[in-house]
């Protein structure tokens, strides 16, 4: 197991791949591996790319990765395909679009499926990003369809989130209202050569103006915040006055048009995070969320085991159905050992 960590840190591709497999399968020892990798992380720029199916995410990511490679940067890509796990199986096709990086081992592309795992996908993604970061990737790109809370959670693990919108479809702009608008740091109207692109840009601009009216003080705000940012690294004060205005970039990904603009927008957002202390704040929020998620998952499985020890959920349900007990009492009984050991003063039974 520690060999695997050593091999990964030494830059062995198959070890990195195997670590991600362990993370995906949650196979024995994966936690120790991820724990051991943590101290080697914190160097990669993490970019989330989301958007509706067919928006051109994979194609854009391919071109971006190729462009980053020209500058000598190494790239890791995690492409999450939530397409319905059918009989547990899945066909993962995002790799087909990675033609610009064919045979280049310094672009590490990994497909992950949703596997219908219970909320575990965002944990697995976070851990996979850890592995790629520890491996030494300069950039890690997480790509997923932007539909549903699960995917929103996933892209939230990124420093900068790009939302792709294809032109000409009112539905896609509608989708933005359902929670995606808030998480985008950069918006991309891809396939900008198609009819309706201008209108989509226009619609987006209107929606984004609605989003940023609160707490925004115009152009002078940026300079003020810059002073505040150097005086106080806390970040919170800076964010109030120096609100990020998400740019809208037009691209034609399959021809590589607009890729430079997109990368510049990503850089701008990175600079903004550095200037305002937002990067540190994001990292704090991210680790707080990760700790809470792990606590919840682990506590859940401990409690499930305790419930089994006390006769199992079915027998508890039987008793509740027969009106011999009630759900609150069942929960109190299952949690009793935990309460006792934690010596909770708010114990309702006292």
């Amino acid at each position: 197991m520690s060999d695997l960590v050593d091999d990964l840190l030494a830059g062995k591709h198959s070890a990195l791949a195997r670590v991600i497999t362990k993370i995906e399968n949650r196979s024995p020892g994966y936690r120790e591996v991820v724990s051991a990798l943590h101290e080697h992380t914190g160097h990669a720029e993490v970019i989330g790319v989301t958007g509706s199916p067919g928006a051109g995410k994979s194609t854009l990511v391919d071109k971006v990765a190729a462009r980053l490679r020209e500058d000598g940067d190494t790239v890791g890509v995690i492409a999450i395909d939530p397409s319905s796990p059918y009989s547990g199986g899945a066909v993962l096709g995002d790799r087909i679009r990675m033609a610009s990086n064919a045979g280049d081992m310094d672009v590490f592309f990994r497909s992950m499926s949703a596997r219908g795992s219970l909320g575990g996908l965002s944990t697995a993604t976070t851990d996979a990003v850890t592995a790629l970061d520890a491996f030494g990737k300069d950039y890690v790109i997480v790509e997923t369809v932007g539909a549903g809370q699960n995917e929103v959670d996933i892209v939230r693990t990124a420093d900068t989130v790009a939302v792709l919108v294809p032109p000409g479809s009112g539905d896609d702009v509608q989708m933005l209202k359902a929670g995606i608008l808030e998480i985008g740091d950069v918006f991309v109207v891809n396939k900008a050569d198609l009819d309706g692109a201008d209108r989509t840009v226009q619609q987006l601009r209107e929606m984004l103006q609605g989003r940023s009216t609160a707490g925004h003080h115009g152009a002078s705000g940026a300079e003020m915040a810059e002073v505040a940012g150097t005086a106080d690294d806390g970040g919170d004060a800076g964010e109030e006055t120096d609100a990020w205005e998400p740019p809208i970039v037009e691209t034609v990904a399959n021809r590589g048009e607009g890729v430079e603009d997109f990368l510049a927008a990503l850089d701008d957002h990175g600079d903004y995070l550095d200037r305002t202390g937002g990067r540190e704040q994001q990292a704090r929020d991210r680790f707080a969320a990760e700790i809470r998620t792990l606590l919840r998952e682990d506590a859940n499985s401990l409690l499930a085991a305790e419930l089994d020890r006390q006769g199992g959920i079915e027998s508890a349900v039987d008793d509740v159905l027969a009106r011999e007990t009630d759900p609150y009492t069942v929960v109190d009984e299952v949690l009793a050992p935990l309460r006792d050991s934690l010596d909770d003063p708010s114990d309702p039974r006292e």
């Binding site: 791949a17 993962l92 087909i96 045979g103 081992m105 990994r110």
Partner: peptide, 23 residues
């Protein structure tokens, strides 16, 4: 099974890259 489909006209290097990275 989980299937990773390569697409057409792949070079041997690309197949190796995919097989290694996708484990």
């Amino acid at each position: 099974f989980e299937v990773i489909y390569s697409g057409l006209h792949r070079s041997p290097d690309e197949v190796v890259q995919a097989a290694v990275q996708e484990d």
